[in-house]
């Protein structure tokens, strides 16, 4: 091991342990939170009808910030597509062995249940559109790795993914403009007339489940198409 590495370890290990100790001592909440955090914890269920406070903050109080996060993914997908534009999709991949293909062919019918559950229960349990969408993108990657890009690209075409991403981004914006049309803020939830329902039920939380669905489709299609762009990149410069 070279001396350069030893010096790096000698710096990194105490720094990491010190940071961990500092975070642990600071992370323990000893009293009821004040300010915005206290307001959110006390009023989020009454304001939106969703029992998951994190989702309420992400998609009701701070929904405009979430729109910014989704725009970051859209921008990165556009940049990667622009960088790798012009490369022909690789048509020689044959995928894994028939044994793996058959078993994954049955199991993939079960695998999509978890992401869809995470997306649709985003206002009830931990998780939401982003986590479920990334799981769905991993499922797209799994299909491409196991079955090979020749067979997979006949069904999960890149244009289908791009279209799904654009449509869900447009859906997010249209759901936001309902608030403006009702005379309230952009992305307003209960104030814009969305029924909050009974807290704890699957149909509750006003616009939050719809926004979760839009973000889930958008993240899944965006990250899946990033992988497809990298997969079809020309590797003979």
């Amino acid at each position: 091991m070279r001396p350069r590495h030893l010096a790096g370890i000698a710096l990194a290990v105490p720094t990491a342990f010190g940071l961990a100790a500092l975070l642990l001592t600071e992370a323990v909440v000893t009293s009821a939170p004040e300010g915005p955090a206290g307001y959110y914890l006390r009023n989020s269920i009454a304001d939106s009808g969703a029992i998951n406070v994190v989702t309420t903050v992400l998609l009701d109080y701070r929904a405009f910030d979430t729109l910014g996060e989704a725009s970051v993914i859209l921008a990165s997908v556009a940049a990667i597509s622009a960088l790798l534009a012009g490369s022909k999709p690789e048509r020689t991949e044959q995928g894994l062995s028939p044994l793996v293909q058959t078993s994954i062919g049955y199991l993939a019918a079960v695998f999509w249940i978890f992401p869809v559950y995470i997306v649709f229960h985003g206002h009830l349990s931990p998780g939401g559109g982003f986590q479920g969408g990334v799981s769905l993108a991993v499922l797209v990657i799994l299909v491409y790795v196991v079955f090979g890009s020749t067979r997979a690209s006949q069904h999960l075409t890149p244009s289908l993914l791009h279209g799904a991403e654009s449509a869900s981004a447009l859906g997010f914006l249209l759901l936001g403009t309902v608030g403006i049309a009702q005379g309230f803020a952009f992305l307003a939830n209960a104030a814009a007339g969305f029924p909050t329902g009974e807290p704890g039920r699957l149909v509750s939380g006003g616009v939050i489940p719809l926004l979760n669905l839009a973000i889930g489709i958008k993240v899944a299609a965006g990250l899946g198409s990033i992988y497809l762009d990298i997969l079809s990149a020309d590797d003979t410069p």
């Binding site: 998780g127 991993v138 990657i141 590797d235």
Partner: peptide, 28 residues
């Protein structure tokens, strides 16, 4: 630390997506 949302995102992105993207990029 009871941050289940972040744990879920970290598991899916770090272990699933980044591994696939890194392996593909390096093999190319």
């Amino acid at each position: 630390l009871q941050a289940v949302d972040v744990a879920m995102a970290e598991a899916v992105i770090g272990a699933g997506l980044m591994t696939a993207i890194f392996v593909t990029a390096i093999s190319k």
